[in-house]
Each structure stands twice: as structure tokens, then as C-alpha cells.
Amino acid sequence: MAKVNSEPAVIFDAVDKSFGASQVFRHLSLRLPKDQVTAIVGSSGSGKTTLLQMINGLEAADAGLIEVLGQAVPTQRLESFRRGIGYAVQGAGLFPHLTARQNVTLVAKLEGWSEARMEDRFASLLNTVGLPADVAERLPRQLSGGQQQRLGICRALMLQPPILLLDEPFSAVDPITRLGLYESFEQTRQTHPSTTVLVTHDLREARRLADFFVILDQGKVVQSGLPQDVLEHPATPYAERLIESQLS
């Protein structure tokens, strides 16, 4: 495991967030290390996904400050800000009417990339995640769940973003496919070591992929730190139960 980088890429400072009457975060403060994989772990309803979506402005904070690479998340003109942040979700979320190639290269096309550059990048991404070239012209429904998920990650990486947000992208596939996806993900880390935030409820997955752990319980960070520290010394009964239930 790599050592935790002292320089933060994402900073939450006293962030409040509510949906109607229910408060998700109150004075949430958190620092996520740069160029490393942070796993946000917690059970359903702990606020993991909301935390992730506040980083790219899909959800806005009610109060407090969120900084990404030294820049506060803007409230206006979010489009160009978001182009610097890759995003992949459970089930891949590929556009059903576009081919694999069109899905992955869409943002590059909107950014005005040349055909040749897009083609180069697309080919190398397919190679990295271990997809054969002949998936390029297929529609999502003609691909397996694992292939779709890999394409979802390719799309997130297309513009080589410095930040990558992953919302349980490995959870909707069978265990063998999942292992293949882990390998692909590790491959992409070799060539593209971006700051990655991985939301998952699976501690094994977090232990395998992440350099840094954040355990969320009902909107509160109950523990954060290096994986082995967290796993060996759970700070709260919740963290202990979480670890016991999944790893013992």
C-alpha cells in the first residue's frame, strides 16, 4: 500500500446538506489524498453517493466549502468544471442509442477533438480495460454487463481527467466478472494514476483497490485513514460491526 499523500485533492470544510427535512451532513469536514484511491465505505443511506455527487456539483452544499484541486466547486457554468472529473456509475449508464464508440468518445467530440485523436484514445482505452476492438460499433444492449461497465469506465477516463468518481461501478456484475474489472481498473491505475473516489459498500473491494478509507455512518465520518489502520483498529462499534460482518 502506498503512503498517504499529504497534499489533499478534495477538501470538505464544515459542509451542511439536507434533502427537505432530512439532514444528510452537518459540519462535514474531510480531506481526500491526491492521486490515490479513496474508498468511501458505509451501508445504504449513509450518504456515500451524496458525498460523491457534491464533488462534481450534482448536489450542491447548503453551507460550507468544497474545494477540488484548489478550486471551489462552482455554482454556475458547471459544464467545463465537470469535464475535468470522470464519473462512472453502477450499471454503467451508457446511452442506449449510441454505439460503444459513440458513448465513450461523446465528450471528446463535444470538446472538439480530431477524429484521429479520438480514435487513438479510444483504442488505447479499450486495450487498457481489456475489451476487443469489435465491441466498438455495438449498442449497449448487445454487450454483456461486464463489457458495459468497462466502457463506462473508459467513458469516464476519455478526457484523462485528474479526478475520477466511481459510484459502485463493480457491484452489479457477477463475482468472476468483477475480478476481471478489478484487474482492468488496476491496469488503468498504472497508466493513469488520477485522484479516485470509490463509493462502495463492499469492504473487500475497498481493501483491494483503495489507498485510503473513509467510513461513513448516517452522514458522519466515523473513521478515516490508511486501510490497515482502520481495519485493525476500528474506532466505533459501527466500524467494528462493518468490518466483522464482511471480513471475519
Binding site: Q53, N56, L58, L78, E79, S80, F81, R82, R83, I85, Y87, V89, G91, G93, F95, P96, H97, L98, L106, V107, L110, R155, L165
Partner: peptide, 25 residues
Amino acid sequence: PTLVRVSLALGLSPWEQLRYLRLPL
């Protein structure tokens, strides 16, 4: 809604979202 969220996260403007996602679907 998942696709809409993805399109926002990809940085699609309202017009691009209409052109590449909502209208074709």
C-alpha cells in the same frame, strides 16, 4: 434519471443533453 445524472456529470450542457440524450430517446 440515471442517464440524466450521467449526462450532467459528463458536463453536457442543457442543449447537448437534449440533442444527445433526451431527444433521441
